[in-house]
Computed example of a mutant assay.
Amino acid sequence: MKVLDDIYAAARTDNRIIILPEGEDPRIQAAALRARRLGIASPVLLGDVAAIESGLRELGAAPGEIEVEDPRTCADYEALAQSWHALRAHKGTTLDEARRAVADPMLQAALRVRLGHADGTVGGAVATTAETVRVALQSLGCAPGNSVVSSFFLMMACADTAPFKGGMIFSDCGLVVSPDARQLAAIARAAAQSCRQLLKVEPQVAMLSFSTAGSASHESIDRIRQALAIVREEEPDLNIDGEIQFDAALDVEIRARKAPGSRLAGRPNVFIFPDLASGNIGYKIAQRLGGLQAIGPVLQGLAHPANDLSRGCSVEDVVSAIAITAVQSQMHPQAKGVYGLGCARYY
């Protein structure tokens, strides 16, 4: 799996602190230890210290090999409460309510990232996606110039029988249900940036539909065309085209017949789906029938890296999420100021 190997190698170049709020989960403990020994990050586990350290000992961890913190008794608890109160006072949150709220490890992890105590956070092995995303939006907010938090799956074609090898970005397959034109444009630009961060190549972006270059008419196609126009205005050098059918996007010969004026060069590495239904169905077909490995959903568009896990995740899934979060943090804009304003919310 060269794509994943390259991500691990990139993570090793700059030791990042990744905070894991579900530290009492055995999968999280095993993943933290593996990530530490692989050198891809310095994980910090939140939770009951005695329970976590007992689990780590059973895994063969040396004393102090993994940093562990109890979110209820940490030394900077009051500072975290003050920070949360400052963020949420306009919503009517009192200081006493903030003090109670920051005992929640998911919230505390995100606040620590916000305050620069950690470079990213990974959760969702126990918490729901709705909770994970809500906390990230409220604590971290959107990156400057972005109004939408979306997601992508890193799809890897590694099998010997695969018609081509390499990594691709599929977006949005996990979060935004029915994006309007401006949201779809934001998703496309964020996915292109994710491609640069993780695949280390220039993005070739295909905005997918059931139509290619005007072969059909429908409201959903108009929305894609509007999104394309927005992207080209905001990022004119980006190689992006649409609306386009998947076969025309993937196959250069078909594209030459159906869309001879396409700006795409070679095979796309970023595929933008018109809505969540098509995206979720598409990545699962590629995974289950096509044999591609899917890692995600990975969040994009936040002011600092925070990622979600499936509650059915394996240890390897968590290790991969830690590595991806570490690499995201290396290139992530470290914006200052008040976050959490102007983000579209879906929960």
Rank of each mutant, 00 (worst) to 15 (best):
E97I: 03
E97Q: 15
A98I: 00
R100P: 12
R100H: 14
R100I: 12
A103K: 13
D104C: 02
M106T: 02
Q108T: 02
Q108F: 00
Q108G: 00
A110S: 12
R112V: 00
V113W: 01
V113L: 00
V113I: 01
L115I: 01
H117Y: 12
G120K: 03
T121M: 06
T121S: 05
A125I: 05
V126T: 07
A127R: 09
T128W: 08
T132K: 04
T132N: 11
V133P: 03
R134W: 05
V135M: 13
A136V: 04
A136K: 05
Q138L: 15
S139V: 06
L140Q: 04
L140A: 02
G141L: 04
C142F: 05
C142M: 09
G145Q: 11
N146E: 15
S147Q: 14
V148R: 06
S150D: 04
F152A: 01
F153D: 00
L154E: 05
L154I: 03
M155T: 00
A157N: 13
A157H: 13
A159C: 11
T161G: 14
T161F: 12
P163T: 08
G167P: 05
M168A: 07
F170K: 01
C173P: 01
G174V: 01
G174A: 05
L175F: 14
V177R: 14
S178F: 07
S178W: 07
P179R: 06
D180H: 12
A181R: 11
A181S: 15
A181T: 06
Q183Y: 10
Q183P: 02
A186S: 15
I187K: 04
I187R: 03
I187P: 00
A190D: 14
A190W: 08
A190M: 15
A190Q: 15
Q193C: 12
C195E: 10
L199V: 11
K200Q: 15
E202L: 14
E202R: 11
A206N: 03
A206C: 05
M207R: 08
L208R: 11
S211N: 10
G214F: 10
S217C: 09
S217M: 09
I221C: 03
D222N: 14
D222M: 10
R223Q: 07
R223M: 07
I224E: 12
R225Y: 08
R225S: 13
A227G: 09
